[in-house]
Design a protein around this nucleic acid. Structure first.
Lengths: 114, 114
DNA sequence: CCATTACTTTGCCATTGATCTAACTATTCA
DNA sequence: TGAATAGTTAGATCAATGGCAAAGTAATGG
């Protein structure tokens, strides 16, 4: 029910929304309560909470309730995992040039050695 | 009509879809025609074309039609720009450790606020 | 114990997004 | 020229998303 690419997909989906990206940005500075996070946004609490829920389901954040206050914490690992997708793409793309160089090197070297 | 964060938003939105991410992955290996790109997907051409249009509008790819064939090319710069968002978040988060003392002070003081 | 605070639940609605089919245009090739 | 190819346009459907208001619950603070 929860394989790797489902989760990756959830992460990308969740980051597609500017409010949620802003929340992530906010949480890079450290944990915060729902109300604190919500303050900058012109949204009602229920609406904002849906974004929090979405972030939590994608495991980009985790939350803990103590008393009546819910505190949210960024899950750095999840963010780093998403970043790795970009790194992989760049690696493939860059690899083309590496291969091109490699090919040229190889052609060069076959003149001299095996 | 096309400022920086509109474009960033468009990029994130476009990458939220698994089909479009797969197209990007495909194009890291080099340019390809619409039909070639579409082949692996169980989608009709019109549907697939919408994904191509979305990618192009977000400037993640560019396309050129020659005869009846449209060829798509990945815009590496746009992909790299998106990657940078993650790098920035990581930078802030990592920066916290440099400021750990300051952070603890801050947490202390926010406990006493109302 | 009463008011306030900080969510939470519920129910609703408008918009957007991804998909399809059907029919059309423009190229290419035999 | 006529058939196949490659993409395009138009219109419809349906689910998911993001938003709201209203009312409820469960801590605190005085």
């Amino acid at each position: 029910m929860e394989n790797y690419s489902d989760l990756q997909n959830a992460v990308f989906k969740v980051l597609a929304d500017p409010t949620r990206r802003a929340v992530v940005e906010s949480l890079t500075h450290g944990p915060a309560t729902v109300s604190d996070l919500a303050r900058p946004f012109p949204l009602t609490l229920p609406t904002f909470m849906k974004h929090i829920d979405a972030l939590e389901q994608a495991k980009l954040i985790s939350t803990r309730k103590s008393g009546r206050v819910r505190t949210c914490t960024l899950n750095h690992a999840a963010l780093a995992a998403a970043e790795r997708w970009f790194e992989r793409q760049r690696a493939v793309w860059a690899g083309r040039f590496d291969n091109l160089d490699g090919l040229l090197d190889q052609l060069e070297s076959t003149k001299n050695e095996s």
